[in-house]
Amino acid sequence: MSAGLPEPLIFSEIINHSFGLHLPVHVYYMWLAMIILFSCGLMLKGRLQMVPGGMQNVFETIIGGLEDFTVKNIGEEGRRVFPFICSLFIFILVMNYIGLIPGCDAATANVNTNAAMALSVFLYYNYIGIKKWGFGYIKHFMGPMPALAPLMLVLETVSHLARPLSLTLRLFGNIRGEEIVLVLLFVLAPVLGTLPMYFLFLLGKTIQAFIFFMLTMIYLKGSLEHAH
């Protein structure tokens, strides 16, 4: 839609048009992702079983696997921060996949969504670090040698500020690029051209969500572990 590209069909515009609303496109798809996740959660909450079947099995596989991965990397403390990063992963994954549905757009293809998430990650890992280490958290920014501490303070500040920026731009660039390629291929050769790309982008979108998850985990690990 933006960048002058023709979109085959955007459901949100139809909704906007018929109800006389002026909400941005990507907000709808974020709400859609939230609705999907909330209803999944509420549906599963009602009938949890000892022997999981169907959807409970899928969620247990994903969440259990990610929890093992987190605990292996961060240590036992990882269990405390795990809910945050896991919900981020699932949320991003669902938003990315919505972009693959014809007529829908990924909410992560808008830079504002990603900036909001990256900023919460930034605030969260600094909060966790300050909560654990108190004022000593500043040692994480000082580097190993006392003589170089002022220089390292500036360097670390720059690299810490670059983290949310790189998180935002990576997710935005990848997802937005994939959406543009899908639209272009749809214009060139409807259905036939886009179908093979779906497999590639399914992988690409999963990997992008996983990268966001993994980087958040690495940052949290950095703020939880002892300064060098």
Binding site: T61, I62, G65, F69, T206, F210
Partner: peptide
Amino acid sequence: FFPKQGKP
């Protein structure tokens, strides 16, 4: 992308 043991 999440094989048997659920590990990535």
